[in-house]
Write a protein that binds this DNA or RNA. Sequence first.
DNA 1: GAGTTTGAAACT
DNA 2: CAGTTTCAAACTC
Length: 688
Amino acid sequence: MDTPQKSITQIGTPNSKSRFEDSPVFNYINSLSPIRPVKSIQNPHQFSSLNFTSPPSVFTSPHLTSSHKESRFFKTHNSSSSSSHPTNPTESREDESTSNESVSEEAAEDTKDVNVDDASKPEETSVEKVLPQTNPGSPVASPYGRDSTTELSLVPYAPTQGGNGSCEGAGMELQPKMFDNVQGKTETPDWESLISDASELLIFDSPDASEAFRCFMMQRASTSEARFNTGVGMQTMQPDANKKLESSDAIPYEAVSFLHRGIRRRCLDFEMPGNKQTLSENNTAACESSSRCIVPSIGLHLNAIAMSSKDCKTNVTQDYSCSGNIQVGLQSSISSTLQETLDQTENETREDADQDVPVEPALQELNLSSPKKKRVKLDSGEGDSCKRCNCKKSKCLKLYCECFAAGVYCIEPCSCIDCFNKPIHEDTVLATRKQIESRNPLAFAPKVIRNSDSVLETGDDASKTPASARHKRGCNCKKSNCLKKYCECYQGGVGCSINCRCEGCKNKFGRKDGSSIVDMEAEQEEENETSEKYRTAKSQQNTEFLMRKEASSALPTTPTPIYRQELVELLPFSSSKNRMPPPQSLLGGGSSSGIFNSQYIRKPDIDLTQSRMEKSFETVAEDRAEEMPEILIHSPIPNIKSVSPNGKRVSPPHMESSSSGSISGRRSGGRKLILQSIPSFPSLTPQH
DNA sequence: GAGTTTGAAACT
DNA sequence: CAGTTTCAAACTC
């Protein structure tokens, strides 16, 4: 490698040009050479030699890799520039080139070497090469004056640039451009110009050249890799440009693709910690679908909405986490950005790298919740609304964790510690879920089961049915009197039922004993009269009461917190981001939690659900939190006959329109249908 | 923000 | 299954 190059190197020095021409060898060769460079009229010597030498190398291995071609071309160019050459030098060159090619093929030529060769070649003179050969690496050592020195210096320089992220692109481009030059400049035998051009190319990277671009495209694999390295920052990659370049040649396509994947994956990661692997990791397939990126965002959006439904009625603008709209917008923008990036990656060369860098930070800013933002949100009045779990010891792998219990991954707003409820730990999450479900198949089912039938059927009045919805297992309140959020029934905006074992139940949504909501309200009024809050509460309650009446059976209106679960259910696929893949066990259990149902829904079902979801979504976006309950009510969530494995607390909700005692639920035939269909669906999620 | 209360979840 | 402990949300100050 070195030897041939070196020998060549010295040939082309511009300064040496005169010497070269004067050289007797040159003259001899020139005279002997049958080949006459078409364009080298000015300098027939140079061209002839070049043409003569170059073709062999080119034709010998036409199918070489682009890199090889490039190097070869470059060489050719050099040779061509060197012009008509004596056979000897030519041969030596051919040999050299051949050797180079073989070498490059074997070990992926070091770009640097190639560049060196290329740069040096022009200078090389067939005759004089020997000296320089000895010190190929040291341009300074070159005996050939500034030109040779310049080029040599330039050559090494280029790779260096390539190595440095931004410059890397230049480095990559170097070859193609050189090639370009070769083609275009074969006509101009002027060494100086060639050298200067080369130097320019090396250092500055001429923008021209569709050809250069084309070459790039040819090299896309390597280029993309380089780009990724650069753009992503390739934190993992070594900064050394040379290595990158080399690797570009040497690295198999797979490696490159892997890099691509990694990048995309990262992008995805930021967007969604989705399901499958790590969020990032999750969407291993991230590359798979850009769409996925968007989808997850929706999930967050829903979650955010759910959360916001409680508390985030305002401040939508500031708190992105709380405002689904905002979040969606952000993510969508992100995803679009990603798309663009990807697209550009394909189409663009250097620019991509530049863009990648900005994109990533953007993602981080947007998706990765900076604690600042989080705090700002929380502090900004949304308070808890946006906050999700705050687990410290459970690692968010127990039902203590709201997120985990809801079947969603923890996200930014969460302030949990040592959280494992993330896509990254999907396996762990699934395993844990499975384990929990083994204990209680309904563990992840919605805690509050809403009976849409009651609403539809209406026969039941609030008086008859304190609440159309019931808590899955009922509460067990001892001190809160079911008047605080400690009570899950109250929190869910549903009345207590037979299932409840609460003491002193005063649940305003319905007492365990079945007292009507009206009564409850009256009682509450009495209770509240003394309190200052009474007025506000009263108005609110009245409103609620009216709303509930309108809804016919107990629609929990105001205080009803929306469960993420339910929202998720509504948006089966949209929420994929944070949602954890449901374990089959639920389905198999026959108790279908709405959440899982949605996930397992067949496509048609999904479509239906989707349409429904869209409505709901719109409603959510537009409507206030109070209206959320309706959505929930209309949600496809089937009534689940809550049968706990223990049989402990879970008992079928009493009363109501018991249409039939189907397995799924007695309340609604419609729901029954849904439930029935559900089991048949194979689980879409990977089972562990 | 820290501490307390509460009840579900988990454990024995 | 009952009792206890653990946990995190809800609540209070």
